[in-house]
């Protein structure tokens, strides 16, 4: 056990750098697409405001916004 255990951990995981789920370059496209889908579904829901359409449009729209 050396005096710098955390530093050793850092060295030990040298082969595993953090990989983000989405790269910084694609963040805008993904974000824009999801928001666009969300807005579109919200619009459709607004046109036909029925209980049936809550799960049909609302759930995917909410997922997209989230």
């Amino acid at each position: 056990m050396s005096a710098t255990p955390l530093h050793d951990l850092w060295e030990a995981s040298a082969s595993q750098p953090f990989q983000p789920t989405f790269s910084k370059d694609s963040q805008f496209q993904i974000g824009f697409t999801l928001l666009f889908i969300g807005l579109l579904l919200t619009g459709l829901f607004g046109l036909n405001n029925t209980l049936k359409n809550v799960p049909l449009y609302g759930v995917p729209a909410s997922l997209a916004f989230g």
Binding site: L9, W10, A12, S13, A14, Q16, P17, F18, Q19, P20
Partner: peptide, 9 residues
């Protein structure tokens, strides 16, 4: 972040 954070084994 990949230059600063590593996943532990």
């Amino acid at each position: 972040l990949s230059g600063y954070v590593r996943r532990l084994k």
